[in-house]
Design a protein around this nucleic acid. Structure first.
Lengths: 343, 343
DNA sequence: CAATGCAGTGGTAGCGCTGTCAATAATCAT
DNA sequence: ATGATTATTGACAGCGCTACCACTGCATTG
């Protein structure tokens, strides 16, 4: 016997089909591929669904179709401004689509990442967005066995699991240092916190540029595994001043450190850029407002999220991108904090 | 006929049960309520599950049990630092639990919120976290019909849907202004951006305090519906200076505006706090580092997220909190930017 | 004009799990 | 020792939807 409406008052597909005078299968098709219906039935189903306020049951759909409409997103931190922009892009890009985002935090741990990937695999996500290219071998194997579109974001590398959206942190840092060297700065300090893989690559870019100009000196490099903050910027800078009092410029791996450095300079009456130049990374809003305005590297974080999720969604629907690796680039924003040095 | 292992190679509960020598139902119970099994079978099922690498199929579980282990979270913005802290609390608090977070962005639109609530309702979430207390009547009705624990966060109000975690924005602003008035500041400006309900309440607190001291003057209030940013802080402050050149203090509804104001003061050679005092709101990390250190209102954003999600999870499991409304309070962080006025 | 193709539609049979309730075994009170 | 109660377990019948395949009727083809 046909079941009456379910106890929870939920409208089922069967009821929609009955009202529209079609079979449940036809009604089901309407929601998945309306083009397949004849215009008449399409309209009838549409009206019936609206009239009854029908909303498909995702659990039943997932069970019956053996796939979900969930896109998993693994990011290493919520604290970081960088990721909040990426996330905004991801959520904006997926907001009106049928896909929902399942967000998890790896806390910068590749073991945690591996564990989360295992969990994701069991739920057969429709697609996946993972941060970075430094997965464990095991994680890599899981990713390759997942049989769904995957985008690695934040950076680029030689061997994508599937697709990639990012930019070269190494090249960006190299360019920053080259810019400073071109302006005749010689004792250029490096401040780094957290030291995740992206930050490591910026350090490599710094090191390459300094060595190439024969300016490399390990005493100029101050790093800490501790998470980044404005306060930490001041602390690291103070440390740098102690170890290398003759510095004439500082490259900070992110803008928080740069702002902390600026404040520390103000506190010590150090003139920026006359005494010391400052360059940050990411170009957050406040860099242009600071006094003096702080140079930085503009990165396309929002676009990165938006592009990545669009690529995943397209790939799920069979539209593979022409180029699986997208370089979103970066832009040096030169401001007064790294103005040319007086002679 | 009993199905062989599913094509995708997925291990089903049936296989676990067979290996353990129990019925599927008993195996199922092991995952939901291990206490109900006799110790012997419990161990047998546990071993079998581990041996086969069994992971339950959440879609099937949701369909069969007519409920999910998804907690919906509605927030109005990803851009805002405030919400990234709240989210961190929510994700940290739920990370090791069985529940997963389904995050959606209302973009500060109560209509969007209503639409999203309708969607959530159809998916029968186990619990819900919603931002604020300004829902539409329709949203309110949906919430009340949802039959799951619900926590409203960010602020407090007289008529909770279910539970609440927040603090009084009105009281916090009132206290800030009282503090400034007590320090003999008289022409206290108000800078507000975005003007969401929480910010409106801060404006009310400001207005109350100013009126009570007979210092109220609408020309001191500068607001914009545009989203907040450090740059916007400078712009609004410039506007305020034009309209009320005699101000001696500024209360900014958030720290970004306060930082922008500080930079604008630096640009114009206005001494803080000698010429103009500044107080922000939220006490982000950089407030204490700034030069001079900026006063602010410390809010417990991370705890708010963590408390809210804990309350929801407990309530789902039948442990209703003793007090459904939790006031997390705030703390005035008085720093040099609002130092006592010279006589 | 029969053979062929194909868009449109429907029937059957589950997807993997759990709610419900009945059945059994073990324990208890009288 | 008897019936009553409790702990443990299992059988059945779906949850709401869709994959798969078969079928219809109409247009196209040689």
């Amino acid at each position: 016997m046909a079941r009456a409406r379910t106890s929870s008052g939920k409208v089922r597909l069967t009821e929609v089909a009955k009202l529209a005078g079609v079979s449940p299968i036809t009604a089901s098709r309407f929601f998945r591929n309306p083009e397949a219906l004849s215009p008449g039935k399409r309209e009838r189903v549409e009206n019936a669904a609206r009239q009854l306020g029908y909303v498909p049951d995702l659990a039943a759909r997932a069970l019956a179709s053996r796939r979900t409409e969930v896109i998993g997103v693994l990011i290493p931190s919520f604290t970081n401004n960088v990721f909040s922009d990426v996330l905004r892009g991801i959520y904006d890009g997926s907001g009106e689509s049928r896909y929902s985002i399942q967000l998890v935090n790896t806390h910068y741990s590749i073991l945690q990442e591996e564990k989360l990937l295992r969990l994701f695999k069991a739920q057969r996500p429709a697609g996946l967005v993972v941060t970075g290219i430094n997965q464990t071998d095991e994680s890599r194997a899981i990713l390759e066995s997942m049989n769904c579109p995957i985008v690695q974001i934040m950076e680029l590398g030689p061997d994508p699991v599937d697709m990639m959206v990012g930019f070269s942190h190494n090249a960006a840092a190299f360019e920053v240092i080259s810019h400073l060297i071109g302006l005749n700065f010689k004792r250029i300090g490096f401040l780094g916190a957290r030291m995740d893989p992206r930050v490591q690559r910026r350090l490599e870019g710094y090191t390459d540029a300094m060595k190439r100009a024969s300016l490399y000196d390990p005493r100029l490099i101050i790093t800490t595994p501790v998470p980044t903050s404005v306060t930490m910027g001041g602390t690291l800078f103070a440390d740098l001043l102690m170890k290398a009092p003759d510095i004439d410029a500082v490259f900070c791996v992110n803008d928080d450190l740069a702002l902390g450095t600026l404040f520390e300079c103000q506190r010590r009456q150090i003139q920026v850029p006359e005494d010391i130049a400052i360059v940050g990374f990411n170009d957050l809003d406040y860099m242009a407002s600071a006094v003096p305005p702080l140079s930085s590297v503009r990165t396309n974080r929002y676009d990165m999220g938006k592009t990545a999720i669009a690529m995943v969604m397209d790939a799920i629907e069979g539209k593979r991108p022409a180029t699986p690796v997208v370089d979103l680039g970066y832009e040096l924003m030169i401001r007064r904090s790294s103005a040319p040095r007086r002679a």
